[in-house]
Nucleic acid binder design. Structure first.
Lengths: 345, 345
DNA sequence: CTTGATTCCGAAAGCGCTTTCGGAAATGCT
DNA sequence: AGCATTTCCGAAAGCGCTTTCGGAATCAAG
């Protein structure tokens, strides 16, 4: 491979000044259509592409955005990441920008990590996910006036861009659904509520319980970690209580998988003796025992959406104009059913 | 935020020349220990960090590597990706390098995509995964003398770096295991064999079948797509044949999930009437019906490993010195068992 | 034709760093 | 003390692009 084609060589080849060629390639209006055409054709003919580092240095634009991976809570690795990255990459590549992924770090180091990312100039924007209710990263990014978008929301979400699913409403729907099936003692397997989504889902559950005139005291609520084991433990406690619930709502599908295990291990069958509903709509839920009823979120194009929005903000758009709330829908598989009664048996 | 600290300002502040400060920060030996210390301390005191684009332009080093995401075959999104990226990111971040992710593109565009990546200078190395038996990307990378590492192998794998799991051996072990359980008609649900791993697993199955003096004619082999649906169809055909197998080996866990479904839908129970063994060791397999027996690959640190190896190659190491073959182990859950006999019932 | 406005391109100054090179100052040796 | 080294730093030339600015050439208008 001969040495890489440079602007210098290209312009010499064309008998034009470097600046002229550069402007021609970048469609400056002060270049005649004729020479512009000549330049552009010759450029592709010779396979010239600008050195990104040189351009980035000259323009001060990083031409890249970072995705901060959520901390993986279980070895049941985040199934979203892959899909989300695909969408994000798709969005960015249309502009020739890079997608860079940074791993999450211990929570206390996050601010420092964000600071570095912002000041280093390696990226022109970032997308963060799974914000806490009071997310330090968001504040940092805001005060630095750095373009960013959030996958999810924090408590106050009016003044930044986000893309989220209304899981509060979804959990309300789930409760209504269970009530319609005759359930009145409905348990909830939650996650640490510093996660906004965990809080929202708990709220949706609670509010709809009282709206239906049902109890949702603490004995019906188990907060545990976001893993199958966590779900199993949480559901286990619920099931072993004096007056166990006849249905259990889980914050995530992964937790629900654990809940199903807890039910099985107690000699009961989910969907019959006790109902279980998860949230996420993971396809893998088709294969659990029994197949998991779940709230599916429309994440097909969330990555693409996130990318497009972030790009718009980087282009100068007002972050407040980019807030999108989608809704989730109940997908009935086989882990829910009417409340169990011995007699009906 | 006041304007970013630059080498120029830092050096003025120190009363030194830019070059001197730069060399001090980069630990050049021609700077006295005294001034080096002074410079470095002042740099951190003032929060100076070099502008990456400027450095990259000056040094010609991209300080980044790209991970090319495998094409996702099913909406059962690749569970590995997340974990792998984490490890990779970890490895790279120790050196302050960036990890950038590029989405896969239609196979026919891959060479072009690789070419762009290589010539653009945006990265100093790439990691590719799921190579085909005769992978065009590998050849391209080799002829361009561009640093890269492969997650998996192609047919001829002697002259480049790779990290792989010996799934051929693993499938041999699985066959032996089933034979020990009394099985003799063992079916195989495969994947398109342009995937090297699909071929290797098929080979492992075949060879060990004949080594055990068992038949492995085409009627026992179904090639289908890498998804749960594919696995369900493949296993279905096997099951519906005149002389159905008493055990089925699947190329991946995801396919095995489908196989379990096929068995259930025919009123049989896996692990009893017919055995199923998958490959990957996905944790989610604990929750299927029944829990899936599988060959688990040690992917805990594969990302980290891949990153370290690639870095070493970029540093000038000989790719041939970086070939690592790990092995998978059988994890018995509940989808395998002795061959079923009516009488024993 | 002359003038004034346009159109189009060349020249040059950066962007913020690295690295080579040469020379002054400090040190070693006789 | 005198010379040859060695130590340490300053100066300057890039890296490959973008972008401003001014001027030559072209055009329209008087």
């Amino acid at each position: 491979m001969t040495t890489r084609m440079s602007l210098k060589k290209l312009s010499a080849h064309l008998g034009l000044a470097q600046g002229t060629v550069s402007r021609a390639l970048n469609n400056y209006p002060d270049i005649s259509a004729k020479t512009r055409k000549r330049v552009q054709e010759e450029a592709i003919r010779l396979g010239y592409t600008a050195n990104p580092m040189a351009r980035r240095l000259a323009t001060g634009l990083a031409e890249a955005v970072a995705f901060i991976m959520p901390e993986s809570h279980s070895s049941l690795a985040e199934p979203f990441v892959s899909q989300l990255l695909e969408g994000l990459g798709d969005s960015l590549s249309r502009r020739g920008w890079d997608l860079l992924v940074t791993q999450s770090v211990p929570a206390e180091d996050e601010p420092e990590m964000i600071r570095k990312l912002v000041t280093s100039g390696r990226v022109s924007g970032v997308v963060i996910s799974r914000p806490h209710k009071n997310d330090a990263r968001i504040k940092l990014l805001q005060s630095a006036k750095f373009p960013f978008i959030v996958h999810g929301r924090s408590l106050r979400s009016d003044d930044y861009a986000w893309y989220d699913v209304d899981s509060e409403k979804a959990f309300g729907d789930a409760v209504d659904h269970l009530v319609a099936l005759g359930h009145s003692r409905i348990g909830f397997v939650g996650a640490p509520t510093y996660h906004t989504f965990a809080q929202a889902r708990l709220d949706g559950y609670r509010k709809t319980m009282v709206a239906n005139g049902l109890p949702s005291d603490d004995s019906l609520i188990q907060i545990c970690e976001l893993s199958d084991d966590g779900g199993e433990r949480g559901a286990g406690h619920l099931l072993d209580a004096d007056d166990p619930p006849t249905a259990i709502l889980c914050t995530t599908d992964v937790q629900a998988f654990g809940a199903l295990a807890a039910i099985r291990s107690r000699g009961m069958v989910a969907g019959k003796h006790v109902s279980v509903i998860g949230y996420d709509g993971l396809r893998i839920g088709r294969h659990t025992n029994p197949p998991l009823t779940t709230l599916v979120q429309p994440q097909a194009h969330s990555g693409r959406q996130l990318g497009d929005m972030l790009l718009a903000i980087i282009d100068g758009g007002d972050p407040r104009d980019f807030q999108e709330l989608r809704s989730a829908e109940l997908l009935r598989r086989q882990s829910d059913g009417p409340v169990w009664t011995e007699s009906a048996q």
